[in-house]
Amino acid sequence: MEVAQPKDLEEDFGLAKRRYAELRRQKRIFNARNRIIGGDTEAWDVQVCDQKIKEATEKARQETFAAEMRQNDKITCISENRERRDRKNLCKAINDFQQSFQKPETRREFDLSDPLALKKDLPARQSDNDARNTISGMQKFMGEDLNFYQRKKFQEEQNREWSLQQQREWKIARANQKCAEDLYLKTRLQFDETAKHLQNLESTTRKAVCAAVKEFNKKQRLQEEERQRDMHWDRQRVQRARAALLCERQQQCQRHDLRRALDCSNLSLAKEQLSQKKYMKEICTNHPTEDYFSQFNTRSR
């Protein structure tokens, strides 16, 4: 029974390692489906990742600008509607005031420019009790005014009615003015509440956009760090592969030297085998079969 020496174990381990590397090389070389000829797939993957990051950044920026533009459009529309309503209410208030307090009939010179003056005009004198019989009209003279007290009483009653009518119109105008002021104040408060709500909505939207941008930047930073880490690992793998390639080349050189030495040794052994074969032909009649020769040249190198 032979004892395994450390040198024998190292040789067995090296032989097993070379066999495993040979099997992996055969799988990689002889499998056309998994072999890629030409092109740097890692560089392509990095370029695709960069393009996706750029497209996502541009899309987020466009969405942020669109949200701000929509918000500004809403604020502009509300401001224009408020200004239009204020102008409309002001014009309505002015028209109501003119119709209530500035009627053409109440003007002092309306009788001079009344287009219906001739239609409304009465004859110069209808009777002796006609109130339009003034002194300048020379229709009635002093001493002929028989209805003086009735006329005076009628004028006082008429003045009283005019005074009461003016008071009623003044009260109605004050009430209308107060209603208009209350309506204007209520509308202004509603507009202020709407503007405040829009401002809060804008602030919330801006915060949401900032949070989204911050989250996107965080994800982009993490992706960039992960990509840098992957590139670092790739560089390390490339360095290890390069070192393995150099080691493999050194081993090839050593195997070449060993093969050269083995060739010299095999040449001498061939000579001995040839002489032994001649000897064996003389003493043996057995010949080697085809299975004996098919066990050679089964490797990729």
Rank of each mutant, 00 (worst) to 15 (best):
R221G: 02
I135A: 07
Y292L: 06
D230N: 11
T285C: 05
L185K: 13
T194D: 10
S300Q: 07
D192Q: 14
Q177V: 00
N81W: 02
L246S: 11
F13V: 09
A21Y: 12
G14D: 07
I53A: 14
R84D: 00
T57G: 04
L116V: 05
N176C: 03
F191Y: 15
E42M: 07
E109S: 09
R85T: 07
A60W: 05
V48W: 07
T298D: 08
A131D: 10
T298E: 01
E193H: 09
D12Y: 14
R160G: 03
C264A: 15
R255K: 06
E83C: 03
L246K: 13
S265Y: 07
S294Q: 14
S113A: 02
P6S: 00
I94V: 09
A175I: 12
D230L: 12
S79Q: 12
Q177Y: 13
A173T: 07
R125C: 12
Q71S: 10
M231T: 02
L267Q: 13
R19P: 01
N133G: 01
A4V: 13
H287K: 15
L258M: 08
M1H: 04
R125W: 00
L90I: 01
R237G: 02
M231D: 03
S79P: 00
K59N: 14
M138D: 11
A67H: 00
D230M: 05
N286Q: 11
T205M: 08
A244I: 03
A131F: 13
N176P: 03
K92E: 15
